[in-house]
């Protein structure tokens, strides 16, 4: 059980009579890049919010980094990083101030902040932009910075909620290089997306339809199972049966 990063068992979230997440069950192994795909409104974000401790499940069980989502939300929070689909840096702060702030609220020491901050800037090749306001950075850079900031405290798991919305394929590819580096260093990556080319990059993918997980396997196995040549087609076959329309 040691190498299980996330475990969900019949996890369910209902809002009044609407079941956003319908008894989903899955395991995520440590160091894995786990993709969560689905149409808008399929329940991806809600599921992720539960795992991050932002929302309480209605029923079912789940552990994140070995901690229970009902009782140990505080411990979970210390062990995860999070990047939301909205842009999560402060535009009126400089690049370095953003790094310092996020590293600061995770309790990193001044020395660690300085060292890791310098390394991060160097890795992204924006050392000369340390004092630039984030507002004047191009979107692609901001997203890469955003991701790097989300893992600056070296969490066990990082949750990425549609991290690459609105950027070009080249930047997206660079972004995925960062994700691979994080995974290589042992960080488990849990990523939601609706870009099917990104689904191909994941170790394993789960496809959500109407709050349920209708398929879960490696991209190549899924393609074999549905007898198609791309994740795109896998997704179309599953999503056609969806009753909920996206918002």
């Amino acid at each position: 059980m040691d190498n299980i990063a996330i475990q969900a068992d019949k996890l369910t979230k209902r809002f009044d009579d609407f079941t956003a997440v319908d008894a989903i069950t899955f395991d995520v192994r440590q160091g894995e890049i786990f993709g969560f795909v689905g149409a808008n409104g399929a329940g991806k974000t809600t599921a992720m919010r539960i795992l991050c401790g932002l929302s309480r499940p209605t029923s079912g069980a789940a552990t994140v980094a070995g901690f229970d989502v009902y009782k140990e939300a505080e411990k979970i929070k210390k062990n995860i990083g999070y990047m939301s689909q909205k842009f999560s840096l402060y535009e009126d702060l400089t690049v370095m101030e953003n790094i310092t702030f996020y590293a600061g609220i995770y309790g990193l020491s001044d020395r660690e902040i300085k060292e890791r901050g310098a390394k991060l800037l160097d890795r992204l090749g924006i050392t000369h932009e340390a004092k630039t306001y984030v507002a004047s950075l191009p979107l692609g850079w901001r997203q890469k910075l955003s991701f790097s900031v989300a893992v600056i405290h070296q969490p066990k798991i990082v949750f990425l909620d549609e991290p690459t919305g609105g950027v070009d394929p080249v930047t997206r590819r660079q972004f995925w290089d960062l994700i691979y580096e994080a995974a290589d260093s042992g960080i488990t990556v849990f990523v939601t997306t609706h870009y099917m080319d990104e689904a191909e990059y994941c170790n394993r993918v789960s496809v959500m339809v109407d709050g349920r997980i209708d398929a879960l396997d490696t991209p190549s196995n899924l393609k074999k199972q549905f007898n198609v040549d791309s994740m795109n087609k896998v997704f179309y076959q599953l999503a056609r049966e969806a009753k909920r329309s996206g918002d």
């Binding site: 991050c52 401790g53 932002l54 505080e74 929070k77 210390k78 995860i80 999070y82 990047m83 939301s84 689909q85 909205k86 842009f87 999560s88 840096l89 402060y90 535009e91 996020y102 609220i105 995770y106 309790g107 989300a150 949750f159």
Partner: peptide, 13 residues
């Protein structure tokens, strides 16, 4: 509005 609140709520703060 900016979406930073969620990131803060996920943090151990």
């Amino acid at each position: 509005e900016m979406g930073t609140m969620e990131v803060l709520l996920v943090s151990p703060l």
